[in-house]
Structure formats: structure tokens, C-alpha cells
Design a protein around this nucleic acid. Sequence first.
DNA 1: GCAGAAACATACCGACCAGTATGTATATCG
DNA 2: CGATATACATACTGGTCGGTATGTTTCTGC
Lengths: 197, 197
Amino acid sequence: MQPDTTRQVLLNAAFHEIHRKGFQSASLTAILGKAGVTKGALYHYFDSKRALGYAVLEEVISDHLRTLWLDPLAETTDDPITQLKDCLINAGEQLNEKDIRLGCPLNNLAQEMSPIDQGFRERTDVMYKLWLQTISSALQNGQQLGKVRKDIDPEETALFIVATLEGCMSMAKNAQDKAVLLRCGKVVLNYLDSLGT
Amino acid sequence: MQPDTTRQVLLNAAFHEIHRKGFQSASLTAILGKAGVTKGALYHYFDSKRALGYAVLEEVISDHLRTLWLDPLAETTDDPITQLKDCLINAGEQLNEKDIRLGCPLNNLAQEMSPIDQGFRERTDVMYKLWLQTISSALQNGQQLGKVRKDIDPEETALFIVATLEGCMSMAKNAQDKAVLLRCGKVVLNYLDSLGT
DNA sequence: GCAGAAACATACCGACCAGTATGTATATCG
DNA sequence: CGATATACATACTGGTCGGTATGTTTCTGC
């Protein structure tokens, strides 16, 4: 097995186990079993369980965020509201029932770890700030294009949008019902429309 | 010490420890230390750690929800929108910086446990349904009073409102900054106003 | 082709965990 | 006043945890 492959297999296994159980309750033994390697391999690539968790955030989850939100929103467009709505719809379509039950990986980790581990908090914070900034820029761009209401504060609105998205995911996760996500998302889409001119 | 007192002391200690660390990572030893009793007392009143967690949900957290949201919204009024806004403002004022860092106890437990324990999920589900129903009723009442727009679906809107509230708490928790909650809450207040006629 | 490093596997460790078994003091009740 | 139940305290157990120490094999560079 190629060295990079083993590291990647470990990261993926860790991501799934952490997504399922949370970081603190994620068992290294379970991760190793899922990855099909032993403890020697893990501690060859990562200094500690915490370091593994950081890597999952910085490499796996960060990629998800980029693919679903940052990259699409970075593309130039003449209609940012539609762009945002497309992002939302697309992100929703990617999720199956299991994903709903497990919730947003970023939010899960942020909620669990930010109060008790500074390293996690700093890393989730960076990712949220990127997310907020990207949406804020899109809204600002929309204002300059005359497609977004000028009486809204882009930063504040971006914060509200992300909060609402995470909230929708939370409600759907607890209800274990994708229909809840869709109903919630529908209201979000209406709200996004209300930002247009 | 009175028997009921010991049980209550245990519940309070468990609530705080669970709020801090999450249920799975909450240590019974830590709870016992905080409560100032021993394991014998705990297992005299509760069958297991899980039963203790259920009791925290049903007795401690449930009380918080009632006090902050259910009871105030159950009072008859001629202006449900203002009633909702007052609830939100009041709930926000109750929170100090530490509460922000630790997040909403109900949401924390729901997020952590609902995917992995049916008993927790059923209990958090009941509480969310109560919350949603109460807000929905208030909106419906407002529609009959002619104070709330008739073109909105009360149930859907209630879902969106609760999702947004939990989302705001999540964002503020991760940012560890009450200012984030206030900025987010401001947009929520605007949204609530937009529901009025 | 040989030395050393990289890439793992295996076996083991102390700490902590939820849970239990047993002891004991106090209150209740006939 | 004696018996039984309540309300705890203390001591202990098996299991799991993250982490480490020590192999062993494969690859790489000279």
C-alpha cells in the first residue's frame, strides 16, 4: 500500500467514525478496524488522537466546505442570489437519509469541541469565517450589480444565513427526517428571494 | 440532607457536567464530586448513567424550556409578534458569556445523542415538538387577530424560527462571542417583524 | 549490497470508566 | 422495642481507552 494511501484511508476512517460518534467518543480501535491498519500505522502518521482530529478538520471537512460552498460561490456571476439558492439546493441534494441523521460534520465538531479544546475552536472558526466571508462577498457583489437590496448589511446577513443553514441541519438531524430539512430549506429560499431587488 | 434534595443536587450537578462535556464524556465521578455525594447515592436514585441523562432532559432542561418559551408564549395576548420578540430578547438577556460558550443544553444533547440513542432522541423530539407547536399556535393566533400575515404557514414558519434560534446559538457558541448572538438575533427580530401585517 | 530510514505490526501499560457488591446508619412502622 | 426499608458510603471489578515500546519488513541512497 502506498504511504499516502494509508494516511488517506486513516483520515477517511477517522472522519466517518468521528461523524458517527463525535470526536471524544470516537474510538481509535474502531477507526483502525475500519481503516484496516494497526496502531503502529496511525501513530506513524499522527502524533495523537487530537492531531488526527485536527487533520480530519483541515483536510477532509475543509474539502467538503470548499466543494459545496466556497468554490461555487467564488465563480463570477451576474446573479448571486440565484447562485446562493443553487448552492443550497445542490447541498441539500447531496445529502441522503444517513447524512441527515448524522448532521453537518463541521457543526458537529464545532459544537462538541469548541468549548473544551482551543485547537479545534481555532480551526472551525477559520472555516466558518471563510464561509461567512464568501457569502458576504457574494451579497456585496450582488449589491453592486443592483441585484441585492442595498438596505441589508452583507456581513450580518451572511451570519444569519449560515446560522439558519446550520439550524435547519440540526432540526432535521434531531427529527431524523429529510422532509424537515426540505421544509426548512424552502423558507430559507424564500428568505433569500426577499433579499433580491 | 433530605432525600429529595440529594436527588436534585445530583440532577443539577449532572446537568452542569453534561452541559460542559457532553453526555458521553461526562464523568460520573466528576458529577459525584460536584454533587458532594458518592456512587451509592447516585445508583440509589438512578438505574444507570443513561437514566440520569434522561432525567436531566425531562426535569432540568424541560423546565428551562418551559420557563423561557412555553409559559410566556402560552399567555394570551393581542400581539403575538411582540410576544415572540420579547421571548427572544429575554432569553438572550439570560445568557452570560459562559452560557454562550457552552451553547443551548437541549440542542447540545439532541445533536450528540439523537443519532446514537433512541431514548434521548424521543425525549428531545417531544421537547422540540412542544416548542414548535407553541410558536405555531402563537402565529396562528396572530393570524386570527389580523396581526400576522395570512400568506405564511405557521408550522413551517415556527420550524424556521426555531432552526434559526438554534443556529444563532451555534454560531455564537463556536465564535465564543455573545456579540455574534446579538448580531444574529437582530436579524431574527427583523425577520419576526416581517411576519407582521 | 549494505546501512539506515521509512512504514508499518504486535504486545503491553496505566488510567479511567460505568457498574456492582456489600456494609452501615437512620428513619419508619407495627 | 424490634424489624424492615430507606438512604446512602466504601471498596472493588472487568473492560476500554489513548498512548508507548519494541519488533519486523520494505524501500532508498550511496
